[in-house]
Nucleic acid binder design. Sequence first.
DNA 1: AACACTACCAAGCAAGCGCTTGGTATGTAA
DNA 2: TTACATACCAAGCGCTTGCTTGGTAGTGTT
Lengths: 202, 202
Amino acid sequence: MTQARAVHGIDDSPRGRLLSAAAQLFRDKGYERTTVRDIAAVVGIQSGSIFHHFKTKEEILFAVMEEVIHFNTERLRAAIAAEDRPVERLRALVRAELTAIVGDTSEAMTVLVTEWRCLNADKQREALALRDIYEQLWLDVLADLHKEGRFRADPFIMRRLITGMTGWTHNWFDQSRSLSVEGLADLIVDRVVGEESEEGAA
Amino acid sequence: MTQARAVHGIDDSPRGRLLSAAAQLFRDKGYERTTVRDIAAVVGIQSGSIFHHFKTKEEILFAVMEEVIHFNTERLRAAIAAEDRPVERLRALVRAELTAIVGDTSEAMTVLVTEWRCLNADKQREALALRDIYEQLWLDVLADLHKEGRFRADPFIMRRLITGMTGWTHNWFDQSRSLSVEGLADLIVDRVVGEESEEGAA
DNA sequence: AACACTACCAAGCAAGCGCTTGGTATGTAA
DNA sequence: TTACATACCAAGCGCTTGCTTGGTAGTGTT
């Protein structure tokens, strides 16, 4: 009953508290190694009581993924809407994704990346559909940049390279250290459009 | 008893066949979802017989990781030795790592990346020590490039970005498609040292 | 002939797992 | 007052899991 940190975008209803606890445990121990008894213990209820809120353990995993995709898709939309120029939109996207992965939704985002195959085929397809919407926001911005001639590679490939760079950060990035999310975002943007892009890039 | 594809660098002794089978299953279903009965079934023996070759299931996972790190560390050494100039050494390293991840040791490499936390603390430390040797080969080459002024970022950070890019490929790269390992390697090298590096980069 | 070694089988145990069941306490609304 | 919904407890069922045990067959080696 140590109570897990709330994942941003998940309310603190009984259900929401279960989801935040599950997200943290799934990230730390993995879905399979986490028992429903573990989750119940964190929020301070009996293991059987979990099934009043969710039909199955897998439904908990899916709910975590669903909530975090929805929340961060909206964050991407806001990031794009706040900028006009494609390069700055890209920078905003990278910042948003980094914040999602190492910041306020890190537990759930990590679960989304690492526990994908624990879902059955149907739920995987459902989650993939949500993910496609998220990815399309990236692809549109990258296509604009490509049209402007800011990079040569295929935008699809470029997105995958970016996904790799941002997705891996949960394994090493520490916000308390010298490198900030903004600094890292600039570094990653440079990998896409080159270093000599801006007025005095320094 | 469908017999798993042999992982490059693992012999075909009874033990080796178990390791190749385990690597494939661990990649496809994850360590926890794979039972010793699954592994036994692939090589065509009883589940109990596995424990004649390995003390525990975890020892199988560790052995897979150990073998694949050793094999690919040697591959990195060979790649470096075959080139003189730092940029070409980097290209050789990227090619080697991509080959490891999507080519002849893909099952075991994927397991190395994704099933890390299934090891207990002691084994994790042991595996980390092996990984450090592997990583040092990268860092030396990246430090040379950095000294030459081929990129501005911290070599440690740069290595982590590269790790992300290469490590993620197992989720999307398909050798049978238009993009080759060499083509992808060139793309990634460009992300590090910029596109206008060589004589007619195309 | 005697022994040792490797590679395996057949059977099953103890523990842990997801999930079920039948019930209780509290709140809310007609 | 009755009715229903939400949120939970206490107990435990049935199954799967990693692993153990005691034994056997085949191959060398001395």
